[in-house]
Write a protein that binds this DNA or RNA. Structure first.
Lengths: 252, 252
DNA sequence: ATTCAATCACTGCCATACCAGTCCTGTCGA
DNA sequence: TCGACAGGACTGGTATGGCAGTGATTGAAT
C-alpha cells in the first residue's frame, strides 16, 4: 500500500501526498479489494474524470501499478486489471516462503519480552476475528512483525510487490475455504516454536501455514477460473460488459 | 534491466519500444554503470534535451526508477541518483540469498544434460573473462539460469529490483577486491555440487559465494564512503560540483 | 561587516492538446 | 446474405506550457 515501494515511506512530514499518490492509493485499493475485478478496463480518461484529476497523475499511478504487476497496459488498446497469473502467484508464494523461513533464525535470536508481548496482542486480536476482512490486515501484520523482529523489515517491501497477486486472490476468495480460526492457530504455533527457540519446528509450522494459503488459492481458481490467466489459451478480450456504459459522464 | 518489472518482457514482437522504455534503459544504465554516481542530479529537462525527447517519457522513466529505489525524487528540488543505503544492500543480499538457496532443491531435481551444457558454456565464458565489466553480465546470467532451472524464473525479477543497489555498488567497486577468477571458481563448485545432487554442499557453496560479494561491498564502502547514505547524520546536499555547469546546452 | 528580504533560476507537478494506433460499426457492393 | 471497407470513437504515448515550491544570490538597510 505504500506510495513508492522503496522510497522512504513517502509522506515524511508536512508535505501533503501528491495527486499521483492519491490516485495510486485509490486505484490500488480498487484492484486489491476486488472492486475492479481482474480483466476490468481501467481507462485513464474515465479514472481522471472520476477522481477529478487530469490524466497525468492517473497515468503515472497506472504506470506504477503496471510495474507492480497489478495492471496490464496495452498501448493503444487499454489498461486492464491484470488477470491473476497462477504461475506468478506460486512464484510470489515461493519468494515469500523463502524470505520468511530464512528470517526465522534471526527472529529467534532477537526474541525478547517486549516483542513477545507485541506478537501476543496480535494473536489475541486475531482470535477474536470473525470475518476475513478483519483477519487479513492482522495476518499481514503478524508476518510483517516477524520480519521486523528478525531485522529484515525492508524485505517486507520486496515481498509485498510480489504479493500483490496473492492478496488480490485472497480477497476475491472471501467465501473462505479454510476457516480463519485455523490460520490464527497456525500463527500461535509458530510463535510458540519461536519462543521455545525451536528453529526446526518454527520452520515446519510456518511453511505449513504458508502452504495452506496456496491450497486455498487453488480452490479459488477452481471456483472462479475467469479471474485467472489461462495457462496457454490466447483468450482475447476479457469479456467487458460494454464499450460505452455511460455517455452522461457523471463523475460519481 | 527489463523495462517493466513484471510486465511480460515488454517487446514481445513487432511493437517497438516506447520512448519511455528507451529513456528508462538509458538512465538505468547511467546509474548502474556508475556514469552518474550516487548523489548526482538527474534533471528532467536536462535528460530530455540530451535524449532528444520531451520531458514526459523521461519523467515517467524517472518515476519507475524511483520505485526501484535507484532514484530519489525530491519534489520541487530535484531528482538525484540515490545514495547507496548499506542497510538496503544487506536486505537485498538477504533476499537474494534466501531465494537462491531455497531454489537449489528444485534445481537439483530438474538438473539434466541439456541444462548442464548451458551452464557449462557459461562457466567457460566466465573463465576467459579478464575484466569485471565482462564478468558481471555473465555472473548475472549464471544465477538467473540456476533459478530458471529450478522453475523459479519469475523470482529473478523480484530479486532484480532489490538488487539494484547491490549491482550499482559492485560496478562502482571496479578496482576489484576479490579477483573475478575466484568468483568463477565459486560458480564451478556450485555447479559440481548440484550435478552431484549434494544439496548440503550446494547450499554451503552458494551461500559462501554470495557472502563474499557482501564482503567486497564493505570494502567499497570503506574506500568511498561519500557514495553511501550516512547511517544517521542528516548530511544535506550531496556536494554537487556546481549549479550551472553549462549554459551552452550542448545536447551531446 | 552583517542581516535580512526581494529576486530569480531552477525544480518537479499537473493540465491540456495533439498524435498514431486499434477496434467497433455501419455502409456499400458483390 | 455476406464480406470489404471507410468512418469514427476510443485507447495510451508524447509534447508543451504554466504552476507553486525551493534555495542560492543579491543588494539595500542596519
Amino acid at each position: 500500500m505504500a506510495p513508492s515501494l522503496t522510497g522512504a515511506s513517502a509522506a515524511s512530514a508536512t508535505r501533503p501526498p501528491s495527486n499521483r499518490d492519491l490516485a495510486y492509493e485509490h486505484i490500488r485499493g480498487l484492484i486489491v479489494r476486488g472492486d475492479e475485478p481482474p480483466g476490468a478496463l481501467l481507462s485513464e480518461n474515465d479514472l481522471a474524470l472520476r477522481l477529478e484529476l487530469s490524466r497525468t497523475p492517473v497515468r503515472e499511478a497506472l504506470l506504477l501499478l503496471a510495474q507492480e504487476g497489478l495492471v496490464d497496459i496495452r498501448p493503444q488498446r487499454g489498461s486492464y486489471v491484470s488477470l491473476i497469473d497462477p504461475d506468478m502467484v506460486r512464484q510470489a508464494q515461493f519468494i515469500r516462503e523463502a524470505i520468511e523461513v530464512a528470517s526465522l533464525e534471526a527472529c529467534i535470536e532477537n526474541w525478547g519480552a517486549e516483542r513477545a508481548a507485541e506478537v501476543e496482542d496480535l494473536l489475541d486480536a486475531q482470535a477474536s476475528c470473525t470475518t476475513r476482512e478483519e483477519f487479513y490486515p492482522l495476518d499481514e501484520q503478524f508476518h510483517r512483525t516477524l520480519l521486523a523482529i528478525a531485522g529484515h523489515e525492508f524485505a517486507w517491501m520486496a515481498v509485498q510487490s510480489a504479493k500483490g497477486h496473492l492478496d488480490r486472490a485472497r480477497y476475491l476468495g472471501l467465501s473462505g475455504y479454510r476457516p480463519i480460526s485455523e490460520y490464527a492457530a497456525d500463527h500461535r504455533r509458530v510463535r510458540e516454536a519461536i519462543a521455545e527457540g525451536n528453529l526446526e519446528a518454527a520452520r515446519d509450522e510456518l511453511r505449513a501455514h504458508l502452504r495452506f494459503v496456496l491450497d486455498d488459492l487453488e480452490q479459488i481458481q477452481a471456483a472462479r477460473p475467469e479471474l485467472f490467466r489461462a495457462p496457454a489459451g490466447p483468450e482475447r478480450r476479457p469479456a467487458r460488459p460494454a464499450r460505452r456504459p455511460a455517455r452522461t459522464l457523471d463523475p460519481s
